[in-house]
Every structure is written in C-alpha cells, then in structure tokens.
Amino acid sequence: MGPGILEVLFEYWPIFLKGLLGTLKYAFIAVSLGSILGALVAMLSLSSHKAVHAVAAVYVNVLRGTPLLVQMYIAYFFLPMVLPALNQVSKEIYVLLALILNSSAYVSEIVRGGIQSVDKGQKEAALSLGLSSAQCMTRIILPQAVKNILPALANEYIAMIKETSLAGTFMLYELMYTRTILANKFLSWQPLFIIAGIYLICTMALSFLVRLMERRLKVSD
C-alpha cells in the first residue's frame, strides 16, 4: 500500500499547489479567450444571413460533437505541421488552443441563449423609439441577457476546470499532471484521491459562488 494519503499530501503539497494553480490558470485562459471568440460566434449564429449562420452552426456542432481529447490530439500533432510558428513559443499553446476553441463553442451557445431569452417585445419597443439595431443590442438586449449569461459562464468555468485534466496528457503542468510526477516516486493511488478531492473542493466552492451570484442578479431584476 505504501504511505497514506495525508502523508503524501503533507510531503508533496507544493506539487499539488502548483498543479492546482496550473489548472485554474488554463481554465481561466480557455474560458476568457473562449468567451471573446464565443461571443463573436454567437453574433454570427444570430445573423439573418443564412451562409453566416451556417458557418457558425458547423463550427459549434463540430467542436461540441467531437471529444475534447480528440481535438487536443489533433491540435498537438496536426497543428504544428500547419502552424509551425507557434511551436517557437511553446508546445503547450497548441493544447491551450484546443481548450479555447472548445470553450468558445459552448460559450457561443450560452451567449446566444442569453440573447434569445430576452423577450422580443423589448427589441420592438426599442426600435419603435428610434434606437438603431446596435443601440438596441447594447442598451436593451445585452444588459438583460447578461443576467442569464453570467451564471452560465461561471458554470462553464467550473466545467472547464474538470476538462483541463486532459491537458496533463500533453505534459501541461496542471492538477492531473501531478499524478505523472508522483507515479515516478512509486505513489500510484494516493495522488489520485488527493487530486479528486482538490477538484471536488474547487467545483463545489465555485458552484456555491455561482448560486450566490444568481441570487444577487435575481434581486436586481
């Protein structure tokens, strides 16, 4: 059996901490950049232009309909051949790119849903007052959509914290990667329970914060 879980935690906590920070960092980068990209995709998918809408739909369907792990493998082995420039920066960028693109597909659906959830009478009222389509979006639709978008976006961050565990496969230093490090020290099972525990604490704490946020947003409605 070897040493106990607590023993391993006390001895190697800096490794786990570094792994956790990596996880939070990669999830944050993926969701932040994914949100910007996702918002753009959402605008495309709301376009009345059929071709533009179709491009957005294909993008979202491909990224949501294939496993993230497969996307990461493609990013890791195929992208360096077509985009060798990024290799100069670091190999991890390719994996991160897969995370960002994957997240953008989910975020675009969140943003699209948030915008569509605003009653269409709001848009009609704004237009009838003479507001332009752009003013209508920024002054009337988005401020109301944000209330639906923010909690869902926070949930996407929580999901992404778990998804980044796949990045350890490609040697990115995140929480799951600590297993690989400690396996070299003949610790096979203890790190797994510690890793699972840390993930659980993170997701539960963040879920609690999301619920608080949802309640706050409801009050101001």
Partner: peptide, 16 residues
C-alpha cells in the same frame, strides 16, 4: 420610427 410612437399590448417597458 422616431416620428411614430408605439404602445404595445405587453407594455414592453425596459425592466433594467
């Protein structure tokens, strides 16, 4: 449209 006012059945006041 700015020269034509409109009032809707569902009011459509801006809740925010």
């Amino acid at each position: 449209r700015k020269r034509i006012g409109m009032v809707f059945q569902q009011f459509n006041v801006f809740p925010h």
